[in-house]
Design a protein around this nucleic acid. Sequence first.
RNA 1: UGGGGCAUCGUCUAAUGGCAGGACGGCGGACUCUGGAUCCGUUGGUCGUGGUUCGAAUCCACGUGCCCCAGCCA
Length: 578
Amino acid sequence: MKLRDPILYRILKAEHYRTGDRWKVYPMYDFAHPLSDYIEGVTHSLCSSEFIDNRAVYDWLVENLAGKCGLPEWPRPKQIEFGRRSLEYTVVSKRKLIQLVERGLVEGWDDPRLPTLAGLRRRGVRPQALIAFARKVGISRTDRTVDIALLEWAIRDDLNPIAPRVMAVTEPLKLVLTNYPEGELEELEAPYFPPDVGKPGSRRVPFGRELWVERADFALKPPKGWKRLVVGGHTRLRHAYVVRIDEAVTNDAGEVVELRGVYLPESLGKNPEGIKVKGAVHWVAAGPALAAEFRLYDRLFKVPFPDAGEGSFLDHYNPDSLKVLQGYVEPSVATDDPETRYQFERLGYFWRDPELGRGEKPVFNRIITLKDTWKKPKEQKPAAKPAKKAEPRREDKVAALAPEAREVYERCRHLGVGEAEALQIARDERLRTYLEDCSAYGPPSLAAPWVVHVLGKAIRSGEAGVEPQALMALLAELEKGAFDRSVAKRALEEALARGGDPLELARARAADRLSAEALDALVREVLAAHPEETASYRAGKRGLMGFFVGKVMRASAGRADPKQVQSMLSRHLENPIE
RNA sequence: UGGGGCAUCGUCUAAUGGCAGGACGGCGGACUCUGGAUCCGUUGGUCGUGGUUCGAAUCCACGUGCCCCAGCCA
């Protein structure tokens, strides 16, 4: 990419469908992007990682055109790339989304199942939720696929404190209370928010002889732990009375078509004595309830990574990702602001679809379900990590060397260079040459670790700014004990980065070292400031040594020998009695 | 194939070479007129192998895996 000859713009003597023949020059991305950033005074140009290659062209153009051709002279913009972020159970690339739209698998770009902004907005997700989600996901240079649970958490967390609770029944089953007078209705007061949200407000909910309850809330043969309606059992109707189910009326096919039972008149606001009430279910009164449509959205794909593996992502499309149900909602919503996001108790968060749902008959989109911690179906996520291949042994690596390289290796070993260093030197021509140059001024075994580990990268790239002679002079003084190893290393790194003579830099650092007394005082100070850590070190948590050394090093502003610090520390830590 | 980039709990993300921490999820418990919320606890990780270093997620080397580019697209 970098070597190619970039096309900056093309000249087309043709009629443009919108601008006619006004322009002949059409800039390419690589030309337009840096220049428009620069002209507009952009300081940081953020983009995703597929443009990393383009940065070379970007920088070159900005650097070479700044201040020329009538362009201003001001700070250059910097392109910074981040990794792409994807989401489980969906696709996010435009190329794939368009296929869903064009094939009619979704109802348009704003289909609430899509991860588009238009889709999320129509679904009812608020910008606050997306911002919170983005913050949680964060930015890094790695391409990542985010757990869908994180988005769901952000949406719920946003809606929980603001969504008034009301009741709706999406799959109605009639419940007749045989001891409630026919034709009568009463109104019960029900708060919009539970105590933990702590917001004021309430509405009146009609209650009568015939109610709708959720079909899924009744079981003929309840599983273990069932806390809902069951024949013979007592269950709370949310915000209302406790009822007992006496009979489940079935049709010829054996399906339950109606429940019959009684309500306990004394159970409003308190639990009846001597009766075990299991759970609470939502309901609406059959007469006054408003007919409504509920659109329940599920994951667009059946698998977490529809892109992965053989075949098309379309093979994993979830045909049940939209379920349209006809049911009832309590009448109070009729007069609410149509923008209201509700929590339909025990069902999830809903709002009226802005396209279809604001008319006579309300249509509700389910924004997100409530978190369900009961009876997990528990889909297993594949966690198996692929087995790693075994690394070849060092002898085999040496054996694989070319004859000349092997000779270099053997010679290095003979001179006392370590195995790993010898191998690296044998493999790289430049390292070998550098070390040979060093050997004119001192023993190669002394130089090898420094050449390989500290200077290695620079030498390989041909930019070693430190001469062999300078390196060897430094190491000779180090051997004599003129300063400690950490001083030498810092000095060498500094010389590498900013130039200068490493020996002089090392001497300057050595002269700046703290005296033993000053250091001892510092050590005592650090230990005194961290009594807990000191105690747990003495109790056996040896890993804390690094913590203490770090603290002392920081306090000394680098003017200490870590080895000396460590020995002082262990002396004080082993002998607590001063 | 060549060039470029990236690898940390199940997931996402932190950690001037100095206690691998947080969030989501999971699990357990408390509470509850929502199997919600809240609170408490817990689980679990530095891609592999060597090397340098008092000390490595971080530096060096070699591997492995994934992504991007190789349009007169963006």
